[in-house]
Amino acid sequence: MTDTARSSGSSKKYGLAGIPRWMLALLPLILIAGIALARSTAGVSRAFAPAAGVPDSLRELRVAAPRTPRLVKTPYLERVVEKKADPREILCDQMVARYNITNTMARMVYDAAAEVGLDPELGFRLVRVESVFDPGAVGQGGAAGLVQMMPGTARSINPEIDTSRELMDPNTNMRLGFGYLREMIERYDKYGNDAVRLGVIAYNRGEIAVDRALKRGKDPENGYGARVLGPRAHGGRSYQGKGVGPLPADSAASK
């Protein structure tokens, strides 16, 4: 047999790179079988994952598996959690951050507003606009204290207030001012959602001026309502509350 014939005969038995043709014919079947096997068994990561349970090194040393420590309950921790859940503490913390005031000042404003049934947030806004939280602030015409109460207005609310020293007391000052603001808001209750704005404006202009403007069909706004209720100087947040809140039980019972 010639070399040509010999090479021709061998080419029929072998394919590319000298691989027998019968093996090449089986490649598709092998590929299909491999895919089917992979789909019917766990993934490689799961198949070769370490056994669950105590690590081998600990098992060999007979060391117990580490446990997650439990939080020990103590009266102190429970009091801290309760304190943070208190709406008073939550709002005071927010106001401390918003207006850069002390916790003592924040609680004093909150308590004075809650005592007369005014929404405490509105109380903070009023103090910010009127005095920037300066208890010793004195304005034109004798307006005094945190909420800049006029002596005449203060005496009309409480005739026993007859000295400027009494009016400068922070608690007395805010209690009178917040009570007056609540009265103004309730005065315009028939105006629905606009009652808070009208009450705030009346706190600044007086109810007579506001009533006169409304009677003429005009808006009594002079910019004061926007200063108290708008976002500027109040952390970028406009006021969304109802203005008034529930009166304490002892105050409501005394009326």
Results as ranks from 00 to 15, higher is better:
Pro248Ala: 00
Glu78Phe: 07
Thr172Ile: 15
Asp111Phe: 07
Gly34Pro: 09
Asp119Ile: 01
Arg187Pro: 00
Lys218Gly: 10
Asp194Cys: 13
Gly117Lys: 01
Gly43Asn: 12
Cys92Tyr: 02
Gly199Trp: 13
Ala97His: 04
Glu221His: 05
Glu82Gln: 01
Val138Cys: 06
Gly152Leu: 13
Ser238Met: 15
Val44Asn: 07
Ala113Ile: 01
Arg107Thr: 03
Arg175Thr: 12
Gly192Ser: 12
Ala249Glu: 11
Ala51Lys: 15
Glu207Val: 08
Leu58Asn: 07
Asp56Thr: 13
His234Phe: 04
Leu122Phe: 09
Glu221Ser: 11
Pro159Ile: 02
Ile32His: 00
Arg197Trp: 10
Ala51Gly: 11
Val244Gly: 01
Leu61Ile: 10
Leu181His: 08
Pro50Cys: 11
Ala213Val: 04
His234Trp: 04
Asn222Lys: 08
Asn222Ile: 09
Asn100Ile: 11
Gly123Val: 04
Leu167Ser: 11
Leu176Ala: 05
Asn204Gly: 13
Gly141Leu: 06
Leu181Asp: 04
Arg125Leu: 07
Thr163Val: 13
Arg79Asn: 07
Lys242Glu: 05
Val81Ile: 11
Val116Leu: 08
Val63Met: 00
Glu82His: 02
Leu229Ile: 09
Arg6Phe: 12
Leu229Tyr: 06
Glu82Phe: 04
Ala33Ile: 11
Asn158Thr: 10
Asn103Ser: 14
Ala65Gly: 03
Arg6Ala: 06
Tyr180Pro: 10
Gly152His: 12
Ile35Cys: 05
Gly206Gln: 00
Ile201Glu: 04
Val116Phe: 07
